[in-house]
């Protein structure tokens, strides 16, 4: 049981490594944690189109906020 869990964990880790590599290749700008969250969301069947839209929007928002903070500062 423990070994099974272990091999499973290994497989997962390997998968995540591969995905991270692809992500880097494609220059998505996602770090390991974000990527894992995204993968989990995708696994739950969320539409990747929408998810990518959200991520882009969030980035924009945070950057514009930063920009405005800089501006006011």
């Amino acid at each position: 049981m423990a070994s099974a869990a272990n091999t499973n964990l290994n497989a997962v880790r390997e998968t995540m490594d591969v995905l991270l590599e692809i992500s880097r290749l494609l220059n998505t700008g996602l770090d390991m944690e974000s990527l894992s969250i995204c993968v989990r969301l995708c696994e739950q069947g969320i539409n990747p189109e929408a998810l990518s839209a959200v991520i882009k929007e969030l980035r924009k928002a945070s950057e514009s906020l930063k920009a405005s903070e800089n501006c006011t500062n």
């Binding site: 497989a11 494609l26 069947g45």
Partner: peptide, 15 residues
């Protein structure tokens, strides 16, 4: 491990 490989890949592509 992954069930929705296309989904993850699509996400990465669009990002």
């Amino acid at each position: 491990v992954l069930k929705h490989r296309w989904s993850v890949l699509y996400l990465l592509l669009s990002l």
